[in-house]
Design a protein around this nucleic acid. Structure first.
Lengths: 157, 157
DNA sequence: TTAGGATTTAGAGCGTGCTCGAAGTCAAGC
DNA sequence: GCTTGACTTCGAGCACGCTCTAAATCCTAA
């Protein structure tokens, strides 16, 4: 859980490179390309705006990096950008909508679980096919003897 | 395993609707839209050409339907169209390349297994987040008392 | 015979999620 | 001050997998 945007109590110093890291470093640390980091920002996948230097360069704080990591996890489990944006909006709205956030995450979890089950099921069927090929190859394709091709254009996948 | 294209020993009768089903019926039976069935055909996801009536309408035999089902399984597990086409080509090339088919399927299986593992891992992390929200809601957000917001712009996802 | 629904083709269009490019700005070292 | 390279914006481009359209043709039922 990301708890607090760690800004100093006094006015935040956004003038220099003293605090936070560059977008290149953020990309390195999160494994997300610079292009994609900017795209995520444009797409509204932000909870608080990323700090900028006086010159307009982005400075990523640890909290920003943590949030990006959350985004990559949601993406990795197939959550669409739109839904992540919605979640980001809820989070940035502050306390009071935990119920809604929970509902969103639980719905997503159900989606993922369903997809996992479907993939597993289909994978099982593919595994059977693999087993048949293995057996066929191990037997030197002996099954042709007892399950011969009956038509010139026949095939067996 | 689809074993044989079941055509009559004599010249196949492709004149009427007597044998096989229409594309609409094939769509209904496979759960794949007519548009997509035609798209798959154009994309080379065929092992033997689908029969046609004299008027040029497609007639799907059971074997065709079975192959389409195989395709949907491969798609459902994330195999790209290109790879399925490659597999289709191997199958349609007939006996003798089982080794290559097996390698293709095993590579796919490894891909799927890796993706499953990744999704599961990320889902676990999301589950933790869900648990925190559940606890927070159950406690009436009591954690604010002992983990209070320290900054006006702080947030917690 | 004919009306109307089903099917055909090739190509265009679309939604998603990046990924790239161009032209301009910033900043660090010499 | 100047050079060089990192960074900026924002629109275009791309890969994928469908999804739809239009105009023509086919087929069935009345």
């Amino acid at each position: 859980m990301l708890e607090v945007k760690p800004q100093p109590e006094s006015a935040p110093d956004r003038s220099g490179p003293q605090t936070g890291v560059s977008i290149a470093e953020a990309a390195r640390r999160t494994g997300v390309s610079m292009h994609t980091l900017r795209y995520y920002e444009r797409a509204g996948l932000v909870v608080t705006p990323v700090d900028r230097t006086t010159g307009g360069r982005r400075r990523y704080q640890q909290l920003d990096l943590d949030w990006i990591t959350v985004c990559t996890r949601l993406r990795a489990t197939g959550m669409p950008i739109k839904t992540i944006r919605r979640y980001a909006q809820l989070v940035s709205a502050g306390y009071g909508n935990e119920q809604e956030r929970l509902a969103l995450l639980e719905a997503h979890r159900a989606d993922v679980a369903a997809r996992l089950a479907e993939i597993r099921e289909n994978l099982t069927l593919i595994d059977h096919k693999i087993d048949v090929y293995r057996g066929r190859l191990a037997a030197g394709d002996a099954d042709r003897l007892w399950a011969p091709v009956r038509r010139a254009q026949g095939y067996s996948d």
